[in-house]
Design a protein around this nucleic acid. Structure first.
Length: 259
DNA sequence: ATGGCTACGATCCGTAGA
């Protein structure tokens, strides 16, 4: 089983690339972030024609998340229960026998800003939510754009980024609090090449210079981590004309090890 | 050089992203 996540930065603009990537990569389920559209304008029919059902939580202009699945997603829950938030950043669904939580974590803008405080509050609420989800669902995957580069090796230029938003110690502590629940960063289950990132700035030839951050992640519960056979980033869509600034990340789970 | 791109929704610039 193949599970993936991709911040598409506008599903309207990226739909042709998304359809092409679904054809090529053929994931069983895909978490999307930054749809930047309301549900009424979500391209549900086109994705159904491509073989994918959708659970969607959208809004105009900003945010918006979806879970695509070859099988109809069940028990759909939008948002973090008990955490009032206008911003559509979270959707959860049951895909086959997996619980999948799709997240678009806040950017945080700048350390010390109001948005940064919101980011940390939001992560605390996410941690509590995932703790409860883990108790209900031993087979839990949390996939999305976390807007945190967990370690310096996830940063192209740690010196330049030191203390900045996405790498600051409180943000990394919020990330580690998720791991402390028993979730594993699937990417680090395996030996990986150096300088693998999932986001590159549109400016300054960021992609060409590989000046990136690894901020898109797939977290797996112990049960799923045991069945995980690979975790990677697919840079190919970032090379296309008019790309998203994020690349898809994906894991493969061995069905027989899940049984 | 603290900018530089891209998307959006409103125009013909401001907000936001990371």
């Amino acid at each position: 089983m193949k599970l993936a996540t991709w911040n598409v930065n506008s599903i309207k603009v990226r739909l042709p690339q998304l359809l092409e990537w679904l054809r090529e990569a053929a994931p069983d389920a895909l978490c999307l972030q930054e749809l930047k559209t309301e549900e009424a304008k979500y391209p549900r029919a086109e994705l159904e024609a491509a073989g994918y059902a959708s659970a969607v939580s959208g809004q105009k202009t900003y945010n918006g998340v979806a879970i695509l699945s070859r099988t109809p997603p069940g028990e759909v829950v939008a948002g973090i229960p008990g955490f009032a938030d206008e911003q559509k950043r979270v959707i959860a669904a049951t895909v086959r026998d997996l619980r999948v939580v799709c997240v678009y974590c806040p950017n945080g803008q700048a350390v010390g800003s109001e948005k940064y405080a919101y980011k940390l509050r939001w992560f605390a609420a996410l941690r509590d939510y995932l703790a409860a989800e883990l108790r209900r669902h031993p087979r839990l995957a949390v996939a999305g754009d976390f807007n945190v580069a967990p370690e310096d090796r996830d940063v192209h230029d740690p010196k330049a980024w030191e203390g900045q938003v996405h790498v600051s110690e409180p943000e990394r502590a919020a990330w580690r609090a998720l791991l402390a629940l028993g979730l594993k960063d699937s990417f680090r289950l395996f030996e990986q090449p150096e300088k693998i990132y999932s986001w590159w700035d549109y400016r300054m030839l960021g992609f060409r210079r590989n000046a990136g951050l690894r901020i898109d992640h797939l977290l797996l519960s112990q049960d799923l981590a045991r069945a995980c056979t690979s975790s990677s980033v697919d840079k190919a869509p970032r090379k296309l004309e008019r790309p998203s600034d994020h690349a898809p990340a994906l894991v493969e789970l061995d069905q027989s090890m899940l049984a």
